[in-house]
């Protein structure tokens, strides 16, 4: 089986699909951390929220409207969180921030249970994407290809914005040295706010595109949180390069581990994380050297 080329193609596509989903989640989390030194553990809960909003809207407004509106809805929740909690926590230590967002996980988990109940929701794919596509000799679900393309497109867009535009330069300056950036006349606080909202929207988008693949349950935010944290810690906090590298490493190790060494698969990724932290305690591509 493992000699067959189509096997490798198929697993590579699977790995890419998982990587892209994790990338959508981790990029928001890592840039928020890089800019604000703020670890938002509730990021996974926002992902679950995005999935719920999308699953609810898909029934009435259709798939494409759901995928567009869910990130906006999650970004709105992000605005409320920013104004109510996060702005006030800016000056406190990382410990307090971790705990407040841990409390938020609890609260958001039960809020989704109250609003949508304990039962899993399902979301159907649009007809265009529900078929199979022949690619490099394998037949692959079109929806999974769509996730890969979407993730790659968003990566390209973010890379372009960060490298080539003025706001990208401001964000890079803020990550590098926020006090100096503020001295140069950049409104760092507003920059934080924008980045935080975009990060939340991307988490919501990840939830929305994941909803048709997985069943939408209250616990899905907690399930994805640990992989996302592993991605950003392996990649190094604060950088786009770290987020994409971490996502790809996680996706490939997890997918190929599961098919080649099923006994070791789940331990493998944690061992990798431990190894990275021992050898390079700040991750592979940290934003600050």
């Amino acid at each position: 089986m493992t000699q067959d080329l189509s096997f490798w193609t198929l697993q590579t596509l699977n790995a890419l699909q998982l990587s892209m989903l994790l990338f959508l989640l981790s990029i928001g989390l890592t840039v928020i951390f890089g800019l604000m030194h703020f670890v938002n553990l509730a990021h996974g809960a926002l992902y679950a929220l995005g999935a719920y909003i999308a699953a609810t809207l898909a029934g009435t407004a259709g798939f494409w409207a759901a995928i567009l509106l869910a990130p906006l809805g999650v970004a709105l929740v992000g605005v409320v969180l920013y104004g109510g909690l996060i702005r006030r926590m800016r000056k406190s230590g990382p410990m307090a921030q971790v705990l407040v967002t841990f409390g938020l996980i609890f609260a958001l988990l039960d809020l989704t249970r109250i609003l949508w109940g304990d039962l899993a929701l399902a979301m159907s794919m649009p007809a265009v994407l529900s078929g199979q596509v022949d690619l490099l000799g394998v037949s692959y679900p079109a929806y999974r290809l769509f996730i890969i393309v979407l993730g790659a497109a968003i990566f390209a867009a973010l890379a372009l914005v960060l490298a080539r535009t003025q706001i990208g330069a401001m964000i890079r300056a803020g990550v590098d040295n926020d006090a100096m950036a503020a001295c140069l006349g950049i409104n760092v606080e507003r920059l934080f706010f924008v980045v935080f909202c975009v990060g939340c929207a991307l988490a919501g988008l990840a939830g929305a595109v994941a909803a048709p693949l997985l069943s939408v349950t209250p616990g899905m935010g907690l399930q994805i949180l640990i992989p996302t944290l592993i991605v950003i810690v392996i990649g190094g906090l604060g950088s786009l390069k770290g987020a994409i590298a971490g996502s790809l490493i996680y996706g490939f190790v997890q997918t190929f581990g599961a098919v080649l060494a099923p006994q070791l698969a789940s331990v493998l990724i944690y061992a990798l994380l431990a190894a990275v932290l021992v050898i390079k305690p700040v991750g592979l591509f940290p934003a600050k050297g």
Binding site: V98, I226, L229, Q263, S266, V267, Y270, A274, L277, P281
Partner: peptide, 27 residues
């Protein structure tokens, strides 16, 4: 092993070891 890391990295490193034990026992 974790003594060299600080702050969020320490938290993540301990989390990694804890989850490693969890996955091992689970499987």
């Amino acid at each position: 092993i974790c003594a060299r890391s600080h702050g969020i990295y320490f938290i993540m490193a301990t989390l990694a070891f804890g989850q490693m034990a969890y996955s091992y026992v689970f499987e």
